[in-house]
């Protein structure tokens, strides 16, 4: 380089990571009682903290080690103050989980309209298995295809027995001539309820910290 230019900033990505994790740790106990509560300003910007931003130019090139640097709090109006009204991680996950359940319930409604007895049931089982695996992944856990199938089967037969009975009955009814459309409508509606029940139960288990694989029957 022909010219020697001064540094634009002394901060590194590591500094920002540390600041973010310190802010997160400092905030955790306060957020726990009510995750969606709008935090009052003092929780994030204590009056004792230096008002000067850490963006101010400093002569030292290297930042101080984390141990000797007290957790730097953000001044009022900084980006960290923006967070309180947006979804927390758990509520964000829950909302995403609900979207997954809703989307799969819609697929199940279509699957229930398949005019072939038992083929529709197989399609609904596949949809349940896919939904369970997506929900598991949403919570950062793993569920193999085999585990997913066993879990879906267990939930289909155990948790929503009345729904299954309803679908099976309508599937058998469908073999008889007449009232085909009515039966398809009943199967479709049952499938939606079915998938929602399974999704809700499984989401609750994931929120309670029960691993997807733990819930799989041996």
């Amino acid at each position: 380089m022909s010219k020697r230019l001064p540094r634009t900033s002394n901060r590194t990505l590591d500094d920002l990571r540390k600041a973010a994790s310190q802010a997160l740790e400092a905030e955790q106990p306060k957020r726990r009682p009510s995750a969606r509560r709008v935090d009052p300003a003092p929780s994030e910007a204590p009056s004792g903290s230096a008002p000067a931003s850490d963006t101010a130019a400093k002569p030292e090139k290297k930042p101080e080690p984390a141990a000797s640097t007290p957790p730097k709090q953000e001044p009022a109006g900084s980006p960290l103050m923006v967070q309180s009204s947006i979804p927390s991680k758990s509520s964000f996950r829950e909302a995403t989980g609900r979207l997954i359940i809703e989307r799969h319930a819609n697929f199940a409604a279509l699957a229930g309209l398949v005019p072939m007895p038992f083929v529709d049931l197989a399609a609904i089982a596949v949809i349940a298995e896919r939904m369970l695996r997506k929900l598991t992944r949403l919570y950062g856990r793993s569920l193999s295809e085999d585990q997913g199938k066993r879990l879906a089967l267990a939930m289909l037969t155990g948790l929503a027995a009345p729904g299954l009975a309803s679908i099976t009955t309508t599937a058998v009814l469908r073999m008889a001539p007449g009232s085909q459309i009515l039966n398809m409508a009943i199967t479709s509606a049952s499938a939606v309820i079915f998938i929602r029940v399974i999704g809700d139960v499984y989401l609750t288990r994931l929120q309670a910290g029960i691993d997807g694989a733990e819930a799989v029957p041996a």
Binding site: L16, R17, A19, A23, P79, L80, V82, Q83, P87, S88
Partner: peptide
């Protein structure tokens, strides 16, 4: 970047 890291917990 700081907002990105801290924004959604």
């Amino acid at each position: 970047v700081k907002t990105l890291m801290s924004g959604v917990k």
